[in-house]
Design a protein around this nucleic acid. Structure first.
Lengths: 213, 213
DNA sequence: TAAGCAATATACTCATCAGTAGATTTACGG
DNA sequence: CCGTAAATCTACTGATGAGTATATTGCTTA
């Protein structure tokens, strides 16, 4: 336990902490392999045998680490949701003009929707989950939505956002920023950051021309 | 063949046309039942036995009318796409300011994305289809997207739309207007028309305040 | 009136896949 | 050094569901 995990080279004798970390890494590897296949082929079209094979392990090993197939999905969705939760928390704690706080939040939101777990999170609808888990996930997504609406309302209050319909604007924004989960190609020319900025600026600026100030 | 189908009361002897129509109606009934279940439970979680049972018929009858399960889905998606194709055609043939043509098109687009077939169309990703059908559907969706981009470009050209990034704006719009396919509740308080108008106006106006003219 | 076709059913087959049983190996703690 | 727990495997079970074989009935047409 006095060993410095980060510097010591591999020894055949692992400490408790190292073992816990190794276990965590294996769980991660399973989830990463799974989420890629879910995104590429869909949840139902992906068998855990396939996931296991892609890692050179056997299906019971996945059950050992994650319990069952739904748990694998829930864990992926949770990981996709986590950065949003953090971004929401941060947006609510910081100061500044409403529009600026919203903009920062939206760019983070859009970006994470383009990574593996974010894409899975967006694409996982209630119908893939048991009623209990669906409710759980829905509640967490709803927290994000609440933050989004609060940020819009704040901006309206301080005059940095036009007096729009908060609920509908939130839906429009969410839709626009979730959509890349379907179409974004990580091997394509534009990176997540550029896309995020472009989408957010489109939403903020609108299509109608603005008279020059 | 000389019988007026619309006025004559039912007779046990059907003309050829009546029979063709009856067949069409049965096909419709199958598709409608199927699309509702696809939307409610997802494609993979819906068995054709379930669909058949909900109509009080047997599975081979569905195969008689539609060939196989993928064909059922393709037909549903096609029906969801058709109104969009028509709206696109119309938008391109009509005159007027770019922004107005775009606005009309977008409202039609948003509305059809909230009906049964439209929702199915939006929610059916490539992963549910065979490569050949996926390509076919993708091509048709891409036609709609081309129209959308053309309308935006037209509006920019005639000065009724700000000089935005056409491709990104199209993605933002599509995302915002597809999203109701996931969340819209037909039994809820707001109807498709109201939602469509609200979303489109949000996209056109943007979030940033406009100086009073 | 026989042949053929449309519409429908029952009762299968066959593949896939989630999940489990149980064996085996290794490492660790007492 | 033995017993326990973790990690992993092979080899199942059992359910589900797509798709088919085949029979039946009745209408249409030569």
């Amino acid at each position: 336990m006095q060993v410095d995990v980060d510097t010591k080279p591999a020894s055949p004798f692992r400490t408790r902490a190292e073992k816990a970390q190794e276990r965590e890494q294996k769980r991660d590897a399973v989830l990463t392999a799974a989420v890629r296949m879910f995104n590429a082929r869909g949840f139902h079209a992906t068998s855990l045998d396939d996931v296991a094979a892609s890692l050179g392990i056997s299906k019971p090993t996945i059950y050992h680490y994650l319990g069952n197939k739904e748990q694998v999905l829930i864990e992926c969705v949770t990981r996709g949701l986590e950065p949003l939760r953090i971004a929401a928390e941060q947006a609510q704690s910081e100061g500044g003009r409403g529009i600026d706080r919203l903009r920062r939040f939206l760019i983070a939101y859009a970006r994470t929707n383009m990574d593996d777990f974010g894409r899975c999170m967006v694409r996982t609808g209630d119908e893939l989950l048991s009623p209990a888990s669906a409710a759980e996930i829905r509640a967490r997504k709803s927290e994000i939505d609440k933050t989004l609406r609060a940020l819009i309302a704040d901006g309206i209050a301080d005059g940095t956002i036009a007096p729009v319909d908060v609920k509908m604007s939130a839906f429009a924004i969410a839709g626009a920023l979730n959509w890349p989960a379907r179409w974004h190609d990580p091997s394509g020319p534009s990176g997540p950051q550029d896309i995020a900025v472009a989408l957010v600026d489109t939403l903020i600026g609108g299509l109608a021309p603005r008279p020059p100030v």
